[in-house]
Design a protein around this nucleic acid. Structure first.
Length: 591
RNA sequence: GGGCCCGUAGCUCAGUCGGUAGAGCAACGGACUUUUAAUCCGUGGGUCGUCGGUUCGAUCCCGACCGGGCUCACCA
């Protein structure tokens, strides 16, 4: 398996099956009725209570309704995400976070007091060195140590885990996602989970029974022995997880390290390097933080998976109920060139995506697809279509483009609100901030050779920028478009203005047409696009040419190709003077 | 082998508290033409995987089956 794919195992996904199971529980039945009444309720439209508002009809709203139904008495609704930074944290892992973020927003929209925690499971062991990491020898020497204790191979952060964590947290900021980050290594070492560990040890037999009930169904059939303890951890001396445990008393555990022969007694209340194994760690933290909602990748959701055993353990050992669950599917990548994958790895990070996708568009993708739907993130020509679809949804939300019906507009508005960075709701009378289309920007950017200031100024001078937000968005998109052109744009999409004019011999007809084209440009400092349109319509009248046969001549003189961006826009953008300088030299004298 | 999810127009996906279904793209037709897979208008296209059951009525509920995916030691 490619190293990039290895990260998938660290994905905390919940299975779709859990959705079904949830739908059968009593709490969910009431949630379902709620949803039903929401849709059919056109009688009490005078007082759209939360939960009946057709605006709140997104899948995140449904998840929020279920969560509230199951935790009606919770003063604070805690929602949780968690990822293991055992390698580069990629855009697939991001689905965990964005899913929680969307549900958190939906909960707040219903008036809930929400706590959004993000658990960095950085107290895990380094089992394998990902293929795209530097300093492989050093990392190999650190196998079986906690990733929070392994040095950062880049030498920038406190640890291997810290490096991966920092990169991902940084990429979340522009997306408007601001959870409360918790590093499990710090919590465990500080003794915060002492009571959780004590209870696990006290109920070791129950835990064994739960885990063995799963194992009994496998062909491997490796039952946990009676002496097995729900513990793991790292040697205080050598840092490896090669420990054997024995319980001394309620709060004290003895261990022997098989690697360095170190032995010690650990008082759980003092903290230290002991922890619970994943299948117990997860439910312990549900109870500890009183988690009401947490998604999971589909690898966690199936019967016998970690969610399955965790929901039993949390009830039996910790007296808490498993959180509401949404399972999410994988995100795939399309359009990465095969060549670079070997050197860069298959991993695509959120930062990589933000080079091409503006934050709202990236969010929008995750908002649009139901969590249990697998989808692809593209870097090829699909990017254009995606932006165009996003813009259309945006126009519908603002009422600039007619929606099929009122509900369709509400859906567009809700979608755009959830996709927005600041969660601002679009209301009646709000003015759509102008943002150039992706295709148009790709052209103007190339005219200005990637100069963002000039590009934005161009739209401002054309009178299209309508406010600070419009200006900010235009600049932001321009940056993305330019990145895309530079790295992903096909050759047909790229062009460059000639720096020196080309002299081309023209036929009589061609000279005539070119002269007509240039006439309105002479003596002008600038010209508007609509002023050129009449010229274009009559350009070839009375000659043996038409636009289709003549324009390639013009494109050749301007950009050295036989076709290119819409000519009126091109000329308008470069200005009459520059156009004349490239085109006029080929005109025969006296024309 | 056990379990779960998915299977809706050519493609990517919505949707239906059960009353024979939609979007975008693609296709086709037309208009326009100011040519980077330009734009605009319009049209066609689905027995909602198969077979049964419940129902006045199922694509939506239940069962079986087929196909695809995932999962069932440890680690997360």
């Amino acid at each position: 398996m490619a190293p990039g794919l290895d990260g998938r195992r660290a994905l905390r996904s919940a299975p779709a099956s859990s959705l079904l199971a949830a739908a059968k529980s009593p709490a969910l039945v009431s949630a379902g009725l709620l949803a039903a009444s929401r849709i059919c309720d056109n009688l009490s439209a005078m007082e759209p209570a939360a939960g009946q508002d057709p605006y709140l009809n997104h899948w995140a709203d449904a998840a929020a309704a279920k969560t509230l139904a199951a935790h009606a008495d919770a003063k604070v609704v805690t929602v949780a995400a968690g990822i293991t930074p055992s390698g580069v944290v990629h855009v697939g892992n991001f689905r965990e976070v964005i899913t929680v973020d969307l549900v958190a927003r939906a909960l707040r929209d219903r008036g809930a007091d929400v706590r959004f925690i993000y658990s960095w499971d950085d107290f895990d062991v380094l089992r394998k060195v990902p293929a795209d990491m530097p300093q492989r020898d050093m990392l190999n020497d650190n196998l079986r140590r906690s990733i929070s204790a392994v040095p950062d191979p880049y030498g920038e952060h406190d640890s291997y885990a810290g490096h991966n964590i920092a990169a991902f947290e940084k990429s979340l900021a522009p997306l408007g996602i601001q959870p409360e980050f918790i590093r499990q290594s710090q919590r465990y070492r500080a003794g915060a989970y002492a009571e959780g560990i004590r209870l696990a040890l006290k109920h070791a037999a129950d835990i064994r029974a739960v885990l063995n009930s799963v194992r009994d169904k496998t062909t491997a059939n490796t039952r946990l022995e009676d002496g097995w303890l729900p513990l793991s951890g790292f040697c205080d001396n050598c840092g490896r997880d090669t420990l054997a445990f024995a319980v001394q008393d309620e709060w004290t555990v003895h261990y022997d390290c098989s690697a360095c022969k170190h032995a010690a007694d650990v008082d759980l209340r003092q903290g230290g390097n002991l922890k619970l194994p994943w299948r117990i760690d997860w439910p312990m933290r549900w109870a500890h933080e009183r988690v009401c909602f947490e998604p999971g990748g589909k690898d966690h959701s199936t019967a016998g998976g970690s969610f399955d055993t965790a929901k039993d353990i949390v009830r039996v050992v910790y007296g808490w109920q498993a959180p509401e669950y949404v399972g999410y599917d994988f995100v795939r990548i399309k359009g990465r060139a095969g060549k670079i994958s070997s050197s860069k790895g298959d991993v695509v990070t959120v930062s990589d995506c933000l080079e091409i996708y503006e934050p709202e568009v990236l969010r929008w993708m995750f908002v649009s697809f139901r969590p249990n739907t697998e989808f692809q993130i593209s870097f090829d020509l699909d990017v254009i279509t995606l932006y165009e679809n996003f813009d259309r949804t945006r126009r519908i939300a603002y009422g600039v483009e007619p929606a099929k019906d009122a509900q369709a507009r509400l859906v567009a508005q809700r979608t755009m609100q959830l996709a927005s960075v600041d969660h601002r709701r679009i209301g009646e009378g709000d003015v759509l901030p102008f943002v150039p289309g992706f295709r148009h920007l790709s052209m103007t950017l190339q005219i200005f050779e990637g100069d963002l200031d000039k590009t934005v100024a161009y739209y401002a001078e054309a009178g299209q920028i309508n406010g600070d937000e419009s200006r900010r968005l235009t600049r932001q998109r321009a940056r993305c478009v330019w990145n895309w052109i530079a790295e992903w744009g096909p050759d047909e999409f790229r062009y460059q203005l000639r720096r020196e004019p080309k002299l081309r011999e023209l036929s009589a007809d061609e000279a005539t047409c070119l002269a007509r084209l240039l006439a309105p440009l002479r003596g002008r400092e600038e010209i508007r696009e609509d002023e050129l349109v009449p010229t274009m319509k009559t350009l070839c009248e009375g000659t043996g040419l038409d636009n289709k046969t003549f324009l390639p001549v013009v494109y050749d003189l301007l950009i050295g190709r036989d076709k290119g961006p819409k000519l009126t826009t091109l000329i308008t953008a470069i200005g009459p003077a520059r156009a004349l300088s490239l085109l006029a030299p080929s005109l025969p004298a006296g024309t």
